[in-house]
Design a protein around this nucleic acid. Sequence first.
DNA 1: AATAGCATGTAATCGGTTACATGATTAT
DNA 2: ATAATCATGTAACCGATTACATGCTATT
Lengths: 184, 184
Amino acid sequence: MSLPHAILTALLEKPSSGLELTRRFDKSIGYFWSATHQQIYRELGRLETDGLIRALPSEQPARGQRKSYEVLPAGRAELARWTAASQDPRPMRDTLLLRMRAAAVVGTAGLGQDLRRHLELHRRQLAEYEEIEKRDFPPGRDSSQDRLRHLVLRAGIDLETFWTRWLTHALEEFPEDVPGPGTA
Amino acid sequence: MSLPHAILTALLEKPSSGLELTRRFDKSIGYFWSATHQQIYRELGRLETDGLIRALPSEQPARGQRKSYEVLPAGRAELARWTAASQDPRPMRDTLLLRMRAAAVVGTAGLGQDLRRHLELHRRQLAEYEEIEKRDFPPGRDSSQDRLRHLVLRAGIDLETFWTRWLTHALEEFPEDVPGPGTA
DNA sequence: AATAGCATGTAATCGGTTACATGATTAT
DNA sequence: ATAATCATGTAACCGATTACATGCTATT
């Protein structure tokens, strides 16, 4: 549904090959729309077939050769159409909240440890976002593009902040079930 | 991945038929793990085959007849195992943030209207959660089960609060593109 | 008895995930 | 030269979504 449009956005920001797109999805784009390289290659094929993008003519299309793509006018038009179209929010699916509710029924044994792990992951993500904000959005710049992209980053920061706070609060319900000596 | 465990949790809270489960997923459970009735019926069949749940013996299993299920000990054990197991967070996929980033490239025309619609949806969801909190978690009760379930609800409230704030802030970037007279 | 809608399903499709394959490039 | 890794794919699977089918119940 949205993967082709994520790719169009990325290619408009900068024409890229499949691998470059994969790298960028691992970094910035994937922060709110993740994709694997298999998805990306398949979708690039479809987008080219549909006439929304094309391979940059300078490169030769042999297997194992880098092939870069750029967006055609039809692709830009499709992205503009999709961006403006009315779309319902996707149904929520959060495993952590589900497990918390399950724990209310079957007990909290073992869950605290994984909550602490998640807390650490969210703290790291938050720190990474804040680094990006410091680097890319210093105070006192404000082109329209910058403001929109900054908004997206702020959403990421605020979401990670929410999770770290919630997990910290939640962990008060969990006794320090120190992991035992185990089998080591 | 998580649907069977969502169903096990729901059935442990209260044995139910397929339709009752569907209703409950539309209400409380579905707030963090949505499912359609087709998914639910298929999964009930699998869970019964696997010996994790069973149909309540009192009811006859004819088509079009209500059939209620309860969780067997093996089902409870599986849910406890899954709840405690270490699980990585799922990759993020948010259409709204993606569209915002696309708008930075192709322009914001038309997007503001849908943002306002989303803002209204999130406000309503927030109001619903706050009603539930007032009704089910009055101040001064604190069984362990209550605290865990309250935590889950607080996550919902805080998430909806985040979205309403973020959307309100984001809309400052959008000129009042009043919908034209249209074709009416 | 006819109709509406309640309750339980089946089938087709589609996107995402995992596992595997293969040609090109780089390092030793 | 060989091995490791880079880069681009293909195939099989799996869960979720959408559309459709069928039997039962209540209303008129």
